[in-house]
Design a protein around this nucleic acid. Structure first.
Length: 266
DNA sequence: ATGGTTGTATAACAA
């Protein structure tokens, strides 16, 4: 590792106010250059900004009362940002927040969960993923250093769910979602975790409702750090940190991080 | 088990 690896991390916190001590502890220890949060479940004015600022982070928050909500923390001040798609379409749900910092675009998304393949929310999820591809096409170029990260709510491959036979066709592991995710990723994204750890079964989310779900490893890999080729080529590591998932009062997700040597960017 | 738990508008959703 070089002296200054540049680190980005993603964490679906399932309520930032309920998770504040856990997130602060993890952030103090890991000190990523950028931390993307999803499901903060509060308005921007209710986000506990001060303890993060005391740790030296700049904050961008796109909040929503009770549901959804995303935030991006960064050690340096963002150089630019996108709050929502900004494409003229519906932008009421707080699910997208992007910043450019240290010359890297970091796009943080909380992709709709989809509820059930027969629910209208499922099509909304597919539409969100398609709209994201158009967002990437219109704002960036695949030759740029771009990271798409967050809770994507789709397990890409059978290895990414605890029981691929039983879960085939369920929300989160439906062929249509997997195909739509591939289509959006085809703009120019590499799944860093899978590229670095082929064949490894490692989840990022374990449903609270399955008793002993974490211990029995009944999980899903649905939180991702996806990067364009230039960043992928200087990636130093990408892994899942399960420690916050076994702490007291855990989120149902756990952080995923990736490190890069930006000085070697082509 | 059309179950289970958790966070938020502390009632009923959403996940």
């Amino acid at each position: 590792m070089p002296l200054n690896p540049w680190k980005v991390a993603t964490f679906n916190v399932n309520g930032i106010r309920a998770r504040l001590p856990l997130v602060l502890e993890w952030l103090s220890r890991e000190r990523p250059d950028v931390l993307c949060l999803q499901e903060i479940k509060c308005l921007e004015e209710s986000f506990p900004a001060h303890p993060f600022m005391e740790l030296g982070y700049s904050l961008r928050v796109r909040g929503q009362k009770s549901f959804n909500g995303v935030a991006v923390l960064s050690l340096r001040e963002p150089e630019d940002e996108f709050r929502g798609f900004g494409d003229g379409g519906e932008d009421a749900e707080a699910r997208l927040l992007a910043i450019r910092v240290d010359g890297v675009w970091v796009v943080n998304t909380y992709v709709p969960q989809g509820r059930d393949p027969l629910d209208p929310a499922f099509q909304y999820k597919l539409d969100f993923l398609s709209r994201l591809k158009r967002f990437f096409e219109s704002r960036f170029h695949p030759s740029m250093p771009v990271i798409w990260t967050g809770d994507v709510n789709v397990a890409p491959e059978p290895l990414d769910v605890f029981d691929p036979e039983r879960l085939d066709g369920e929300v989160g592991f439906h062929p249509d979602e997997r195909a739509t995710l591939r289509e959006t990723m085809s703009w120019g994204f590499v799944d860093l975790f899978r590229r670095l750890h082929p064949g490894r079964k490692q989840f990022t989310f374990w449903d609270y409702r399955l008793r002993g779900g974490f211990t029995r490893n009944l999980g899903w890999r649905i939180d991702h750090v996806l990067a364009t080729e230039s960043l992928s080529s200087v990636c130093l590591g990408c892994d899942v940190d399960t420690e916050p998932r076994v702490a007291s009062k855990p989120s149902d997700h756990t952080p995923v991080w990736a490190a890069f040597d930006l000085s070697r960017l082509p």
